[in-house]
């Protein structure tokens, strides 16, 4: 990997993302080379033969972090004795929510901030900073449309304005507000939908009062490539991105001092019918397995899938083992 050029790596990671979105083959974990994540979870998951009667379909959206999460949940539920199907490539949150509502999937991981802003029309600056508070609010809203949600993960994922460390040092950038007076000569890259979202470009313009030289929409798979090849001065990244820990000497994110990008802990969205059918082990397993999912763990799991090209199923399986959930 060290000999591969960064450009090729960027392109390959996009190709890989395409493959992953087509579907990841399940894969046994016979690898005892354990270089990640010491176990800090809450003990082994106990298999209950009663659960074998229930088939759960685990969904996720279609980017690396979600696919890894989907695998973690799926394999944990399997360890608890459930029959599990996977649909880890649903497009947007709109598609995923519709899939839960129409019983095509039993549930999927959603960011509590996304749920509030995108489903329930809460302004991003009004999303509670406290994860439990945000979860309670989202859960109450979900219940109005006959959905429910389980408590949030320890880690929170958020959009962030990222740049090369070099650029940040040259321009003395630490917070997003530091861009004032400089953003006019800087090009910002972000996903196509970022352009109009209040928790993205629209918020940077309206709430920070920033104007950029140009905003260019790109596939989110290219968010580091455009920084690497010098096209973008700034790029919208995610706080859980593996590059941020693996290449901390290269990329930095600017602190969102006005809180335009609401942080999102992940909550499991499902229906009361599935909860009823699957019994108490369903929520117990989900909550138990996410105890170990800190920002650091998520960055590491992501790094193995996105940077080291390991299959998500294998990475998730090894994580569950090393954290003591399965064995």
């Amino acid at each position: 990997m060290r000999t591969t050029s960064k450009r090729a790596r960027g392109a390959i990671s996009v190709l890989l993302a395409l493959f992953l979105s087509i579907g990841v083959a399940a894969c046994g974990s016979d690898d005892d080379d354990d270089q990640t994540t010491s176990g800090e979870g809450g003990g082994a998951i106990v298999s209950n033969p009663e659960n074998g009667k229930v088939t759960l379909t685990v969904g996720s959206k279609n980017f690396t972090e979600q696919i890894v999460l989907g695998e973690v949940y799926a394999q944990a539920l399997e360890a608890a004795g459930y029959k599990v199907d996977k649909r880890l490539n649903l497009g947007s949150e709109t598609v995923a929510r519709q899939a839960v509502k129409s019983d095509q999937i039993s549930g999927y991981p959603e960011y509590v901030s996304t749920a509030l802003t995108s489903f329930f029309e809460v302004e991003p600056e009004e999303v509670p900073a406290d994860a439990t508070e945000a979860y309670e609010e989202a859960k109450a809203d979900f219940e109005k449309e006959d959905l429910t949600a389980f408590p949030p993960t320890p880690f929170a994922s958020a959009n962030a304005v990222g740049t090369l460390k070099k650029t940040a040092e040259e321009r003395d950038l630490k917070t997003v507000s530091d861009l004032e007076g400089q953003s006019e000569e800087m090009t910002l890259y972000g996903s196509p939908e970022c352009r109009q979202r209040i928790d993205c470009l629209a918020g940077l313009e309206e709430l920070y009062g920033l104007k950029f030289k140009k905003f260019v929409p790109v596939d989110i798979g290219l968010r580091y490539t455009v920084l690497d090849n010098g096209q973008a001065d700034l790029s919208i990244l995610f706080t859980t991105d593996p590059q941020l820990s693996a290449q901390a000497d290269k990329y930095v994110i600017l602190e969102d001092d006005k809180e335009v990008f609401p942080a999102g802990n992940v909550i499991w969205v499902t229906t009361p019918e599935v909860v009823e059918e699957a019994g108490p082990d369903y929520e117990k397993t989900i909550v138990q397995v996410q105890e170990g999912l800190t920002l650091k763990v998520m960055q590491e799991l992501g790094a193995r899938v996105e940077l080291e090209k390991e299959p998500a199923a294998k990475v998730a399986g090894e994580y569950l083992e090393s954290a003591g959930y399965t064995g």
């Binding site: 090729a8 392109a11 798979g221 290219l222 455009v226």
Partner: peptide
């Protein structure tokens, strides 16, 4: 040739746009 792959491949060489 899949277009999306081609665009991604060329993104590193000539950039997007």
């Amino acid at each position: 040739i899949p277009e999306l792959a081609l665009i991604a491949f060329m993104a590193a060489a000539i950039g997007v746009g």
